[in-house]
Computed example of a mutant assay.
Amino acid sequence: MRLKIIHTTRYEFDAPVPYGLQQLRKTPKSYRAQNIINWQTTVTGGIKELEFEDQHRNTVDLISFATGTTELVIRNEGEVELTDTHGVVGPHEGAVPLWLFDRQTPLTRPGKGVRELIKQVGGDTELDRLHTLSAVIGAAVTYDKGKTETGCTAEEAIELGHGVCQDHAHVFIACARQMGFPARYVSGYLMMDDTVEQDAMHAWVEAYVSALGWVGFDVSNGMSPDRRYVRVATGLDYSEAAPVRGTTLGGAGENLTVSVQVAQQ
């Protein structure tokens, strides 16, 4: 399957911004089941200073704002060819050791809520247990926009009983690591069945299964990623795979609009 993706982010500031700097993780890479046909990033109102790979081999664009910026527009677009592997990504690669993904972070630190969810998980194989875990989390934390913020922890999402894909990912990671599985956060694009237009990127998780390597789980949709999923960035949690991280100087307020279009070619 070939997907066409257009991701536009627009910042409108109510006063000129003297300086700003952003890291973007919006560029997918080719791997076994994903071939990048073409991809480009264009910036209006700023400058693409450089491109580099972070410790997780994510492609990062460093963007600076032009002096006195009142509007910044970032457009990422391209085409990606995908094949279905039933969620199996494969062996661990890269310089970061596998054991690092056993480490809990402030966003995934386990507590009473995580321990209670794990008690509900059964299964004869590692894969069975992880699929059951995904279903348990989906039942305990209802997908509901507007209930949580980006800094919401796994335990807070469990207590609220509501959240979005980011929260589902953090809860799964917290539980999986507590169960002895290395786990990582994944951000990317998803072709929806009912709409081309979206207002954000998607998030899911990957856990390491001894017989298969990394395997993906999308708690929000109750499935493993198929050929509609485009992997972009991975990390220990959202903070390491966030599409945008940065800062601006000055006290200008901003209006942010995001448009994501994912369609089959």
Rank of each mutant, 00 (worst) to 15 (best):
A140C: 05
P225Y: 08
V209R: 12
E156H: 11
D226Q: 09
A154K: 01
E197Y: 15
P225Q: 07
S210V: 14
D144T: 15
V219T: 15
V219L: 08
G161C: 08
G122F: 14
V136W: 04
A139R: 15
M191L: 10
G235A: 15
L127N: 13
G222P: 00
A169C: 08
Y229S: 02
P182M: 03
F217V: 10
A207D: 04
E149Y: 11
D199E: 15
V114G: 01
Y208V: 05
D193A: 14
V209T: 02
A200Y: 04
I158N: 00
H170L: 11
G123A: 13
S210R: 15
L190A: 08
L127C: 14
D124I: 07
I173F: 05
G180L: 14
A203N: 05
V186A: 10
P182C: 06
A211D: 14
G161P: 00
D199S: 13
V230M: 00
L212Y: 14
A157E: 02
T148M: 11
G188A: 00
G123F: 15
S220Y: 04
V215S: 02
A135R: 07
H162D: 12
G161A: 09
V171S: 03
E159T: 12
R231E: 11
A200V: 00
A157M: 03
T148W: 08
V232M: 09
V209W: 01
G163E: 13
R228L: 03
D226F: 06
D193V: 13
L160K: 03
I137E: 12
V141A: 03
I137H: 02
K145N: 12
H202P: 14
D167L: 03
P182E: 01
F181C: 02
D128Y: 04
V171T: 12
G188E: 02
E155W: 01
V230G: 00
D194E: 09
A157H: 00
I118L: 04
V219I: 08
F181P: 02
A157F: 01
D193W: 10
K147Q: 15
R115G: 09
V219M: 11
Q198N: 09
Y189I: 00
E156Y: 04
C175T: 13
T125M: 06
G146T: 01
G138S: 13
S220T: 15
T142S: 13
A176P: 03
V219H: 08
D128I: 08
N221W: 14
A174D: 11
A176M: 01
G146E: 11
